[in-house]
Design a protein around this nucleic acid. Sequence first.
DNA 1: CGACCAGGTGTTATCGCTAACATCGTCGGC
DNA 2: GCCGACGATGTTAGCGATAACACCTGGTCG
Lengths: 337, 337
Amino acid sequence: MEKTSREPAMTDVARLAGVSHQTVSRVLNNHPNVREQTRLRVQAAIKELDYRPNRAARALVTGKTQLIGVVAQNSTLYGPASLLSAFEEAAGGAGFAVSVGRVKVLDRDSIAAAVERHRDQRVAGIVVIAPTSSAADALADVPAGVPLVTVDGDPDRPTPLVTVDQAVGAFDATKHLLDAGHDTVWHVSGPADWFDAAGRVEGWRSALEAAGAEVPPVMAADWSAASGYRAGQMLARMPEVTAVFCSNDHLALGVLRAMSERGKKVPHDVSVVGFDDVSEAAYFIPPLTTVRPDFAAVAHETLGLLLEQISDGETTRPRRTVAPSLVKRESVGPPPR
Amino acid sequence: MEKTSREPAMTDVARLAGVSHQTVSRVLNNHPNVREQTRLRVQAAIKELDYRPNRAARALVTGKTQLIGVVAQNSTLYGPASLLSAFEEAAGGAGFAVSVGRVKVLDRDSIAAAVERHRDQRVAGIVVIAPTSSAADALADVPAGVPLVTVDGDPDRPTPLVTVDQAVGAFDATKHLLDAGHDTVWHVSGPADWFDAAGRVEGWRSALEAAGAEVPPVMAADWSAASGYRAGQMLARMPEVTAVFCSNDHLALGVLRAMSERGKKVPHDVSVVGFDDVSEAAYFIPPLTTVRPDFAAVAHETLGLLLEQISDGETTRPRRTVAPSLVKRESVGPPPR
DNA sequence: CGACCAGGTGTTATCGCTAACATCGTCGGC
DNA sequence: GCCGACGATGTTAGCGATAACACCTGGTCG
């Protein structure tokens, strides 16, 4: 009788290849001291049995897993979703599995719970997508010793962090509008407790100040097209508003709608710039000039930073930013005369 | 000297509580035959040491993991992204970790490779988000014996499948337009190799046939606003077009733009309905009437189906559909006279 | 009142792997 | 021609959990 029930183990491979299981282990782990001929025999046996090493057994003896835990909010917001997707691909390419722990809200308790779940799984490292201050606070609870990288987190905290350079993107966008001839640029901001939003406000302000332009009051909003629309309704009533930089593309969409309803043409009467370059931004009316973050680069830096911590325990250069690029379309023009 | 380096193991807890490690195991696994007093002592010891069971050791001896693998495409398309997010949350709630394997393209080789990676990890089950025929074909390669559920996959294949009822959603949307008084409804379809798109075409057609309406040719597109715009440019030139059902909201956005450029007012001259209810759909110009799939329900059904297979090996009722709902906004009106 | 049963607990084997050490030729140096 | 070094391999001992079984207690029953 065959034992059809059991999956092949290392000893089965060893028997078939006529070696000891330790030699099989050496082949699997690319140890140098294995004769070429032996290596080939073992590899043939592995293939024949469709043997796959038992990760649990390996993890048990080495005390290490090939798992990275990610904590992310359960939202479909473009930025976080893109980041997550890019990171999963990058990690997969490096031979790590990614376990995602979704959280309904980014508060201290939820994040702590998600981090605990990952520690229970004994992940090699944790990535937290922590775009708000509440999320960043929760990280203070994470015990040292767990390799951890924050993405989109608090720039003022000393933890390892990778983020899009919001300020540079906002600066470029604002400068682009000023260069088109506008006296100043208004700003519709994302929620104040988001670091992304704060960084964009900062970049916008510094571009205005650098140009000696007046700094109008910030229009506070959340990320939704709805709130952009409300802000736009106000902006559309003020004749002196000729240029608006929005903290993301959905806000811009709302502003575009408000302008359109009020009879203001974009870019003839008002110029608008967004942030994110969502896939449909090229098909807004008019096609939206916007700032495109490089999520793949952020994911890559994040993975690198995490792997450094996993292998070395420490890391040089624990803060990395990735510069975004300005995508020019048709929503920017000179101010009306 | 203390061994500060090692994490506490079951024997450490046992020593502290004055019992054997087996008793600790019993407490952890809620075995009935443990005295209440003993249970409390053990639990106190667990808490004091901040002991957490080693999953690798458990997996090694039981041969089972608490891991579910998901294969998904690396895209930010609204449907798949929402599905994934909802599933991660549902699985997390059931005590399963979710390992996501991203794939650049949904072809046979990529999916097979992703499934292999998950099998290497010895996941308890696999979910494949397989919205295209190329993806569905790849599933033929997956060996039987691995619990597997397809989401958004091929309705004509006998594998366990959960999907949004595309046909019902499209039927309702089309009927809504017919009920508003339109003679017929045109359709801008997603890519033909997507089951979602095919199901929506089917629902649209059957609604027209049920009403005895003429069935106009399908306008083929991909999912992008760009292709919706191109289709819209053609539709806008045809005076007899008064109602359009788009296979998703982004296509609808493109159509809206094309209509607007051509001077056609929505809903006065043309009515438009989308599918997906993306978060910004309420802020299109005009707010878009659309079909909302219930992703949480799909995720829940998927998890249920998978867990059934994991525990029983088989499943009753291996095909489940979730009915979407029509969200009425302002993009539908009676035809112009 | 002894046998039997069942509840509570401990003992031992085992899962599949890697680390550490042991073994055994073979080769070059003196 | 003997010996230490080294390359190639085998042997043994865990890693930390669960499963199976053994072992004590009492209490119940004939």
